Computed example of a mutant assay.
Amino acid sequence: MKRSRFTEEQIIGILREQESGQKTADVCRRHGISAATFYKYKAKFGGMNVSDARKPSALEDENARLKKLLAEAMLDNAMLKDVASKMVTPGAKREAAAHLCGAHGVSQRRGCAVLAIDRSSVRYRSLRSDDADLPEAMKKVAGERRRFGYRRIHVMLERQGIRKNQKKLRRLYREEKLQVRKRGGRKRALGTRRPMVLQGRTNERWSLDFVSDAFTDGRRFRVLAVVDDYSRECLALVADTSLSGLRVTRVISPI
């Protein structure tokens, strides 16, 4: 909207000159306005004082200020919903601030204020050396020594001339998921066992059991063994990575 070159006080002064008895044409000529503009001023400000004329302007300014605050609050709410995930690590906070600046077109200061983080943490750039070869060296040692933890891997790497902080080695050890699996305790049978009755001839009773082992690459496989209890003859020996109940039935039926 085009702003008038006269203030409210000046317009009311022009109207009062005409009300004091001067001709409208003379007043318009003196102030360089047209008659239509004069009557427009009179329709809007006629009979008003300076204080009355300032009230609508003050209300408009207050309304504009409230609209601006509401728009900023709605934008902050939209940005917070956009990054609703948890930001725990400094790296995640830097990524969230960069996303807000790029997606919503806000400044870095505004994005950091919305996320309640310090700008120094967003501007931080790591000066640490790149240890891209360290995880591969750890994997190689862990592949050769499968029961070694991060402390013993640290000793082996030092023997190879790779000297790193043990805490850093532990962090990489966890990130690469090289933890040694804990062996479960031995299961013990409860109660007393009855002695097994010996059989008098073959094919009177069979026993079957599964044997499990692993390949060098870590894949597990199982072996189904069927044995005659009297002659101790192995009637079937089937190996596979998976043996279902239907597969066991198909193996035993021909026997």
Rank of each mutant, 00 (worst) to 15 (best):
M1S: 15
R3Q: 15
R3S: 12
F6P: 07
R16E: 14
C28Y: 05
R29G: 07
R29M: 10
I33M: 07
I33A: 05
F38I: 02
K40T: 15
Y41E: 08
N49W: 03
N49C: 04
V50L: 07
R54G: 08
K55P: 13
E60T: 11
K67Q: 09
L70I: 14
A71W: 04
L75R: 07
D76P: 08
N77T: 15
M87K: 13
M87N: 10
R94D: 11
A98V: 08
L100M: 05
C101F: 04
H104T: 00
S107V: 03
C112Y: 02
D118P: 14
S120W: 06
V122E: 03
V122I: 12
Y124E: 03
D130M: 03
D130P: 06
D131N: 13
V141F: 01
G143Y: 00
E144P: 03
R145W: 09
G149E: 09
H154S: 04
L157V: 03
Q160K: 14
K164D: 03
R170N: 15
R170L: 15
R174E: 09
L178R: 06
Q179N: 14
R181S: 10
G185A: 12
G185V: 13
R186G: 06
K187M: 01
R188T: 08
R188Y: 04
A189F: 14
M196C: 00
M196S: 07
L198T: 15
G200R: 11
S207R: 11
S207C: 13
S207I: 14
F215I: 03
T216L: 02
R220K: 08
V223I: 15
V223Y: 07
L224Q: 01
D228I: 08
S231L: 13
L237Q: 12
L243E: 10
S244T: 15
L246Q: 12
T249W: 00
R250F: 12
V251K: 01
P254Y: 09
